[in-house]
Amino acid sequence: MKKLLSAIFTIASSACVFAQEAPTSPLEFSGSVDTYFKYDFAKQPNITTSFASDHNSVSLGMIDLVLKKKTGKASFVGEISFGPRGQTQSIPDEAANGSSFHIQNLYVNYDFTDQFSMTAGYMGTFIGYEVISPVGNFNYSTSYLFTSGPFQNAGIKATYKFSDKVSLMAGLFNDWNVYSASRGVSSIGGQLMVSPVEGWTAYLNVLSGLSGYGYGTIEDLTTSYQITDKFKLGLNAANYDVDNDGGGYAGVALYPQYAVADAITLGLRGEYFKTKDVGTTAGTAFTSVTLTANIKSGGLTFIPEVRLDHNKDLPFVKSNGMSVPNAGQFSLAAVYAF
């Protein structure tokens, strides 16, 4: 026992001495919880984009917990979520095996210099405007572009920052949304970040490789511009082609937001989205308009939202079961971030 205690003391002392050599940030701890009520005007779930799926129910989003620490040039992020939004609705293949949680981020990073860093692990995808965590989105419901694109990428990536205005990332990744590769490290991806003027940032993204749709290439532009202290404009445009006539999609979404008061911001999401033909099966096109308000009080954000979708191929239903071209829903979400 004495030897064991001595050993523990020695190891702890060594760790302490080692830690003193490099600047250490305190352990960062943050997270969020979210819940929502949604009422579909057809009195049944109708719009099939991700999350906020239950009709006439006060339902759960997820509890999300994030840990981060940086010691010298090395850092890690671990983010785990529990609940439908971060679990079964995000990563169906894991849910099929009965997972009780979903890792959102789990990676280590090393800053070789102020300009050059490398990151390895499981990371939120670099593709697209919207994310899984409701804290990172303005709208509570999600776009077709988000729902159809990757959620996460496991892999290794290198980032070089030329200046505050330009950086370049390149990496090798597994197939989409899986903790371990199903067919080896099968994708290559890159991101060019440019910030032409203060407040305007644009990301040009490419990801080529394996996904649930097959092998293909996705090109994506994600940009946002804080034009004044009250007005912000975001844009996401993407094109995805799956090899051998396997389909894919293309779309564009615009996100204007205006702060009408200190704690209240109104935002609109207008989206056009089209799935591509798969063999002889024709693709279909959606248009969607979502009006959202963010009402903030401390860490709490209330998100009332009205959404109207249209598709001339009648994928939606009315309350009597008839196929119709239009669908609508109202939701009220509460998101608390800490």
Partner: peptide
Amino acid sequence: QRDRYGNY
């Protein structure tokens, strides 16, 4: 605000 990678 926390970004998609868990950084503020």
